[in-house]
Amino acid sequence: MTMNLKLTFSTFLALVAFAANSILCRLALVQNDAGALIDPTSFTLVRLISGALMLLILCLLYRDSRDTAEVPSRLKQVWQSGNWSSATALFIYALGFSYAYVSLATGVGALILFGAVQITLILLSFINGHRMKWLEWLGLAVAFSGFVYLVLPTLSTPSAVGFVLMALAGVAWGIYTWHGKKVSKALFATTSNFIRTLPLLLIALVFVGFQLDITLQGFWLAVASGALMSGMGYAIWYAVLAHMSASVAAVLQLLVPILATLGGVIFANEAVTLHLILASAAVLGGVLIVLIGKRK
């Protein structure tokens, strides 16, 4: 009973961390009379650096009864656990995530992100040999209908650029998650991939001319997003994944857009519209139908 309560609480913390990333990013990047607290590139830079540092500390602190490696050997293990293809996907996700939230509300952004993640994973599963049943096809059709409804130009829709960027971020995170199914030490692999994104960020800085616009408040919001919600949140999530099936984990992630929407209402004074509720129900309900179909 104690173990179940601990698992439930840890899972809830991880999902809250995922939703909090959306809230923190939106708070940092929303435009007001004085401008944004931080620009998207700077937010991504601080987020990934602080996340890499937090994850590296966790790797150095983490030990099990079979692990007797010294620090230099452990650092080598950490580096070798990741790869450049996963790091590139992580980089595209993080950068697209930041730029998309310049123009998207918190809940809409999270909906697009996690909807795209789930659909990407479904399509990758299909490409790799899984043949979908009629219930899965029905769910996929419902989910895509929700996306179409979300972006119809005659309704109160999100920015087209923001939608494309967040959908791209979701596809990248879906690919990154798919790659993660093959790793044996998820924490080490995530740390290595975070570190590998830093050279890619330097390339991005060249394109923006190293013109960084950072306030102290924006900096700490990015640190909180990177070190706590990404670093600690991912570590907690990987710990609880060992105790649940992949389908259960996927269904649980569907709670994130709902949590992010509630957070946006509480912390960013955003409104919940009927349009967003209907789109959310279609996208998340469609993905849930697919997952039910996979289990059957």
Rank of each mutant, 00 (worst) to 15 (best):
L165M: 13
L187S: 06
S280M: 14
A260P: 07
A250T: 15
H275E: 05
N269T: 12
S280V: 02
A268L: 13
L255A: 14
W237R: 08
L262V: 15
I236C: 02
L202R: 01
G174R: 06
T215I: 07
L205K: 02
W173G: 00
S247M: 13
P199M: 06
T191Y: 05
K185S: 08
M244E: 04
A271E: 11
L201R: 04
V248F: 13
M244F: 09
A268Y: 03
A279G: 06
L216T: 15
G180E: 11
L165A: 10
M166H: 02
K182W: 05
F207P: 07
A189I: 08
T261N: 02
L254F: 06
L168C: 14
K185T: 09
G174V: 05
M166L: 13
V248L: 15
A172P: 01
G264A: 12
Y176A: 11
L187N: 02
L276E: 04
A186H: 04
L216C: 03
S247D: 12
S245Y: 00
V223P: 12
A222Q: 05
L201Y: 04
L200V: 13
A271Y: 06
S245R: 02
S280P: 06
L276K: 06
Y238S: 05
V206W: 03
Y238D: 07
V240N: 04
W178T: 09
P257W: 05
F194G: 04
R196Q: 08
K181V: 08
L216W: 09
A271W: 00
L187D: 02
T261Y: 01
G174Q: 08
F188E: 13
M229K: 06
A242T: 14
V240L: 03
H275Y: 06
V183Q: 12
K182C: 00
A167W: 10
A268D: 14
G264S: 09
L228P: 00
K185V: 07
P257E: 07
Y238I: 12
F267T: 06
L205I: 04
Q253A: 09
L205R: 00
F188H: 15
Y176I: 03
V223L: 10
G162P: 12
T273I: 04
L216G: 13
V265I: 15
F188W: 11
V265L: 09
L228K: 07
A204W: 09
K181L: 10
A250D: 07
A235H: 10
A227E: 07
G233Q: 09
V272M: 14
V171W: 01
V240Q: 07
V248M: 15
L205G: 10
F219C: 10
R196A: 08
G174T: 14
S247H: 11
I236W: 03
A224W: 10
K185H: 14
W178M: 01
T177E: 05
S280T: 13
A204T: 13
A281N: 03
L201G: 13
A222P: 03
L252F: 05
L216S: 12
L205M: 14
A169D: 02
G218Y: 03
G174Y: 08
A281D: 04
V206P: 03
D213V: 05
G180Y: 00
K181G: 02
E270V: 09
V164G: 03
D213Q: 10
